[in-house]
């Protein structure tokens, strides 16, 4: 799994080395890393529904690694923008964040992932306490919604790719909403609740 998650990066690196990233390699690098950031965010968010539906509680062990890969690709995406696209032109970057709606929403979506990555270690979970940690990590929902909007607003006209992400994210969040509603209806002792607790 770990190796598979590095394939997109390996392909980009090989493309850059061989000069096969096309006429606009910088755009290609930024687009590809952005695509995989969103993909890993959605894959991470799919862990809880999958382990409930498939009754495979062990899946949760993969979640931290997948989430960190989302952050990793997000970091590459953001660094690609700052270094390759803008080359540290901070005034231009600030202007982008202020004036270009897709960056206005994309930038905080990435920044929100930083505290999640920092608090991903076992030691940090213990330090924060489970309840506090879970609350903090609900920020991932905000980040994923922001990330999908970022993609939707970037695209000029053909929104079929960002729509796919939108549909998937809606399904993943919808699943949680249903679980939450059921839990409320059944009262606090249901099995779904204990699942949720563990899932965070």
């Amino acid at each position: 799994m770990f190796v598979a998650a590095l394939i997109p990066l390996a392909r980009l690196a090989a493309g850059a080395a061989l000069g096969t990233l096309g006429a606009n390699p910088i755009e290609k690098i930024i687009r590809t890393t952005g695509y995989w950031t969103l993909s890993f965010l959605l894959i991470t968010l799919a862990v809880t529904p999958l382990r409930i539906v498939l009754k495979l509680p062990r899946l949760v062990r993969l979640r931290r690694m997948l989430g960190l890969f989302a952050f990793f690709y997000g970091l590459l995406h953001f660094t690609g923008y700052v270094v390759l696209d803008q080359f540290f032109d901070w005034p231009a970057i600030l202007k982008d964040i202020a004036k270009r709606p897709f960056i206005t929403v994309g930038f905080p979506s990435f920044v929100l992932l930083i505290p999640l990555a920092v608090t991903s270690t076992d030691a940090m979970v213990r330090r924060l306490g489970g309840k506090c940690w879970r609350r903090l990590h609900r920020l991932v929902y905000v980040s994923a919604i922001g990330g999908v909007i970022h993609y939707l607003w970037l695209v000029k006209k053909d929104i079929s790719d960002p729509l796919r992400f939108t549909v998937l994210l809606t399904a993943l969040l919808g699943f949680r909403a249903i679980v939450l509603l059921r839990r409320r209806a059944r009262g606090s002792n249901s099995t779904v609740l204990s699942d949720r607790r563990e899932a965070g």
């Binding site: 006429a23 755009e27 696209d85 231009a92 202007k95 709606p101 897709f102």
Partner: peptide, 18 residues
């Protein structure tokens, strides 16, 4: 500016700096 991006600079294909 285009409503969604600045038009102040451009990337010439094949060049690193805008």
């Amino acid at each position: 500016d285009h409503p969604r991006w600045s038009q102040a600079k451009e990337r010439r294909l094949g060049e690193f700096f805008k």
